[in-house]
């Protein structure tokens, strides 16, 4: 079947098997390998992407279900060469080690900051509680999100807090 959706600001149309998971659509069909997978049971959250701005475990959605929606992956987090403050925060505060959970964690953080520009520690912990990091013990992830909050990530007043969608990977630019 054919699906059309917006991925990181660009519209893509592809033929997919009806049963194809969104995570495999992003990784295998579009070649956006920044989205990872780490379990078979929707527990780990390494596959989290934003669908219409909300964190979604992409192993739990079919590509077909996402047709017509807007998907944002880690590849769409930076604005060209300018990193999202969340990305900067993770580098500043050592919010990542192996980097495997990191895309999902950052996207959840982005969604959190979009609705709560100044979250406290407990709010951040709750926001990422559906995701597992095996490396960091979480404290530095919390600090990373706090760093982003302090540096204007969530403060809409300090535009451009939310970066424009990444340079759109136009359909033909994305390796099939």
């Amino acid at each position: 079947m054919q699906v059309t959706m917006t991925v990181n600001g660009a519209e893509v149309t592809r033929d997919v098997e009806p049963r194809q998971l969104l995570v495999h659509f992003l990784r295998d069909t579009l070649g956006l390998t920044g989205t990872h997978w780490g379990c078979d049971t929707s527990n780990c959250g390494t596959c989290v992407v934003l669908v219409d701005g909300e964190p979604v475990k992409s192993c739990t959605a079919l590509a077909a279900m996402t047709a017509g929606h807007e998907v944002r992956t880690v590849e769409g987090l930076a604005d060209g060469a300018t990193l999202d403050p969340v990305q900067q925060g993770f580098m500043e505060e050592h919010g990542l080690q192996c980097g495997f959970c990191t895309p999902g964690m950052m996207l959840t953080a982005r969604a959190l900051l979009d609705r709560d520009p100044d979250p406290d520690e407990q709010t951040i912990r709750e926001a990422i509680s559906g995701q597992i990091c095996r490396c960091t013990g979480y404290a530095t992830i919390v600090r990373s999100v706090r760093w982003a909050a302090r540096h204007g990530a969530g403060a809409a007043a300090e535009a451009p807090a939310i970066p424009a969608p990444a340079a759109p990977p136009a359909a033909e630019e994305v390796p099939a």
């Binding site: 956006l32 390998t33 920044g34 990872h36 987090l77 993770f90 580098m91 990191t102 895309p103 950052m106």
Partner: peptide
């Protein structure tokens, strides 16, 4: 190593 990881440009075996 962080600049590549935060951009989703790590290269793991399944990639």
């Amino acid at each position: 190593e962080d600049p590549r990881f935060v951009r989703g440009r790590g290269r793991y075996v399944d990639d």
